[in-house]
């Protein structure tokens, strides 16, 4: 999947078609069409206010597009509420981490598993009548611990989630998203607030996630090192419009992208776009 020639043969798992979202007179996203092939790591970049997170919110059902459609594995997602989108197999993280602060790390992940839980809530009240429900609860607990171990959070399983250090909170948010057993993961600025060392670790972590969990990943990122390092294909938004798409190499040298990031008369020189990434 990494060679560009094979791309045509790949399945398009997420298809955004002519999506427009207007807030009154403001066009937040204008006529956006993009495809994300199965098993890829795709980047969605653009300067601040370009509408990247809005695109995420349209995909995950928080906004209903004014026009256009979003298809996931051939089924329409447009108009579904967020929890149905999650059931369909898309999960996401947030730019500003949104954990369940009063809950422990383990409970956070268990909450993520709930969407796949078959036992009804009242069955757990009568454990002797519904042993299967009780067994499922135990399995969820065990599975969540396993997932935490996989992401290196096993030791903090009983800690309250808000007590974790920042990087671990980001990882926990990803763990929680994975607990919903998604096929598609949307990461909103996973590297925000991380130092260069942590960003490099994140690169490997994202690749490992994709391989271990059979995911397709779409990520928003400002850190160009991360974007160029991990993404196989990149879409660039500016002011709600798609201005470029392509492999990291073509994006790096695309004059329109450079202009969007650095302004029109900036001395571009030989520095790549990533030379001075705009800080959020």
């Amino acid at each position: 999947m990494k060679n560009p020639e094979g791309k045509a043969a790949q399945n398009i798992v997420l298809k955004i078609k002519d999506v427009t979202l207007r807030f009154g007179g403001l066009v937040a996203v204008g006529d956006l069409s993009m495809n994300v092939p199965e098993g890829s790591i795709t980047g969605l970049i653009g300067p601040n206010g370009a509408g990247k997170t809005t695109v995420f919110n349209v995909i995950t059902g928080f906004y209903k597009p004014t026009k256009g459609s979003v298809d996931f594995m051939g089924k329409p997602l447009t108009g579904l509420p967020p929890h149905k989108v999650c059931e369909a197999g898309l999960s996401r993280t947030f730019q500003n981490i949104r954990l369940f602060h009063n809950e422990t790390v383990l409970e956070n992940v268990m909450i993520g598993s709930y969407v796949r839980q078959k036992g009804r809530w009242w069955q757990n009240l009568l454990p002797f009548v519904f042993p299967a429900a009780l067994r499922e609860e135990r399995e969820i607990r065990a599975g969540s611990l396993e997932l935490l171990a996989h992401l290196g959070l096993a030791e903090q399983a009983d800690a309250v989630s808000s007590s974790l250090p920042y990087g671990a909170q980001r990882r926990l948010e990803i763990a929680r998203a994975l607990a919903t057993r998604p096929k598609f993961l949307l990461l909103d600025e996973p590297a925000a607030g991380m130092n260069p060392q942590e960003s490099v670790e994140l690169l490997n972590f994202i690749r490992k996630l994709r391989d271990d969990f059979d995911l397709t990943i779409l990520l928003i990122e400002h850190d160009m090192k991360v974007v160029m390092g991990v993404c196989e294909y990149i879409w660039v938004l500016d002011r709600g419009l798609l201005i470029a798409e392509g492999s990291p190499e073509t994006i790096r040298t695309n004059p329109q992208v450079i202009e969007a990031y650095l302004g029109k008369d900036a001395p571009v020189g030989d520095g790549p776009v990533g030379a001075s990434p705009p800080v959020q």
Partner: peptide, 11 residues
């Protein structure tokens, strides 16, 4: 605790 996050988790 967080209704938006809960929705995202399929609740």
């Amino acid at each position: 605790d967080d209704e938006i996050a809960a929705k995202t988790m399929g609740i």
